[in-house]
């Protein structure tokens, strides 16, 4: 009996040990990958053609998704705050809370999550397919560093484009709240806009844009990392795509909390 119990304890220890080792190895690999990727962003040669192309794919083509997310979020925010505000006769707070909520929090986070779903997965699938069909090895044999050719353009494009997308989301989100408030909640257009601008500070917007830049980095990094190391054909590329989306979404939410509590509170 004691032998069997001892065996089970050892098994449990082995499982914990394997898990810990696996976690440490993964962390080390990600750290090295990140360092190489960031270095590739600042060292020549730069592939401007790829950068422009990625800016289009990551930024421009994400506009519809981000815009739709923002307009509905702003609209629903206005409805909910109106309900809450009416409980203590403070309906007039709607424009202020909508603009604060959108610029400080929901704009960057929701845009980040939507772009994570759209872009992180696409990057992981593309790089993953290039890995399993030896296209990444082929780059090396053609004297081209894959970190500079593939990864740096995606990282830079995402870090630059995400704040721009969030800026658009801020405007459209406020507009969503404005439309609902003026059309169905009985706000006057002029007073709504005055209230929006009067209590808004520049910091509300810029803090959201800084967050967006960090989220952009996370999105591109996770897509590249999981794609670059994917293996095992179609199934491997599939799981790389899933991992890229899940890990970037979770990292975005965690980074959002950390940034808010440490810097922007």
């Amino acid at each position: 009996m004691t032998g069997a119990a001892g065996g089970m304890q050892l098994n449990l220890l082995a499982v914990i040990g394997r898990f810990a080792l696996g976690f440490l190895a993964e962390t080390g690999r990600l750290t090295r990958f990140t360092a190489r990727a960031v270095l590739a962003c600042v060292q020549p040669p730069f592939f401007f053609r790829n950068l422009l192309q990625q800016a289009m794919v990551i930024g421009y083509y994400s506009l519809p998704v981000v815009g739709l997310t923002a307009v509905f979020t702003g609209a629903v925010l206005a409805l909910q705050i109106y309900i809450g505000g009416s409980r203590f006769n403070a309906e007039s707070i709607v424009p202020t809370i909508v603009v604060l909520g959108i610029t400080r929090e929901l704009g960057p986070v929701l845009a980040g999550l939507m772009v994570a779903g759209r872009v992180s997965s696409a990057i992981a699938a593309e790089l993953g397919t290039m890995r399993v069909t030896e296209q990444i090895d082929a780059l090396t044999t053609l004297s081209t560093n894959p970190f500079k050719y593939l990864i740096a353009p995606r990282l830079i494009a995402a870090v630059v484009m995400l704040p721009l997308l969030v800026l658009v989301a801020d405007v459209i989100g406020v507009m969503g709240g404005f439309l609902v408030s003026t059309e169905t909640l009985g706000f006057g257009a002029g007073s709504y806009l005055t209230n929006t601008l009067d209590f808004m500070e520049a910091d509300d917007v810029t803090s959201g844009l800084w967050k967006a830049a960090v989220f952009g980095f996370i999105i591109a990094l996770m897509g590249c990392y999981h794609g670059y190391f994917s293996k095992g054909g179609a199934q491997g590329v599939g799981s790389a795509t899933t991992h890229a989306v899940v890990s970037s979404a979770i990292l975005i939410l965690a980074a959002n909390y950390l940034l808010t509590s440490l810097i922007f509170s």
Binding site: Q135, D137, A138, L142, S143, T144, Y149
Partner: peptide
């Protein structure tokens, strides 16, 4: 070096001529 890969490993995002010219344009 030059290498011919087993599955050819052509860059599917680029037209054929740019694949062939890749080492000249990017590498050199």
């Amino acid at each position: 070096f030059g290498m011919l890969f087993q599955g050819s490993a052509l860059f599917d995002s680029l037209p054929v001529w740019e694949n062939v010219a890749f080492g000249l344009i990017q590498g050199r």
